[in-house]
Amino acid sequence: MLNIKNLHVKLEEEDKVILNGVDLSIGAGEVHAIMGPNGSGKSTLSYVLAGREGYTVTDGSALLEGEELLELEPEARAAAGLFLAFQYPVEIPGVGNMTFLRTAVNAQRKARGEEELSAGEFLKIVRAKAKTLQIDADMLKRPVNVGFSGGEKKRNEILQMAMLEPKMCILDETDSGLDVDAMKLVAEGVNALRDAGRSFLVITHYQRLLDHIKPDFVHIMAAGRIIKSGGPELALEVENNGYADLLAEAE
């Protein structure tokens, strides 16, 4: 599904290297988790894959089903099947959540040469999906993320994911700012989307989220590289011992 090879990235405006040779391969239907200390480059990896400005790729590649993502505009990456659930979902005053969702869904359908959804069809689908995520009609009407609580913002991200049906989902610290119940609800939303054709990359600080979204593989990132990969037991090891031993081992 997603093949990242030797990815080197620096900040566009200063000579600071953030990613220093990331290699990561995610198969169809797999769930991978990335953990790592603050500043290790986890969020940068997600932004670079989604196409945010401000970064320069100095080397390497990232293929989504064989297609080079790094050469595409952000909207084309989305149409190709990539989705990033933001750590800090953006508030957009003046744009209704429903308008936003429908514009996004139809723009992607159009880019893929599919029929756009009519207002009626769209409404039916969005209402059903919103209900399972406990998103009420009021949240759909309000401007995108404006006045949403932390939990509402994250549920709104998952709703977007459910509506857009991407192939490759990146969840950037989706658990941050959530209480246990909210985290469970979000995790259930994610688990409902798991299937053989859809892959996930879950970026998190804590093992806790991985109790709910069970990963097939866990990677530890430090100083812009993946320093260790393993199964779910690796997350437990971090939870119990912290990163110090792993970092020392890698040096």
């Binding site: 989604a50 945010r52 505009e73 933001f86 723009a107």
Partner: peptide
């Protein structure tokens, strides 16, 4: 906000228009 909209598949120009209209709303 522009990147957020683009990352959801909204083409850049359409995203800009949406944000301009939102500003005028």
């Amino acid at each position: 906000a522009l990147f957020y909209l683009q990352s959801r598949g909204v083409p850049k120009r359409m995203a800009q228009s949406l944000l301009v209209l939102a500003f005028l709303a």
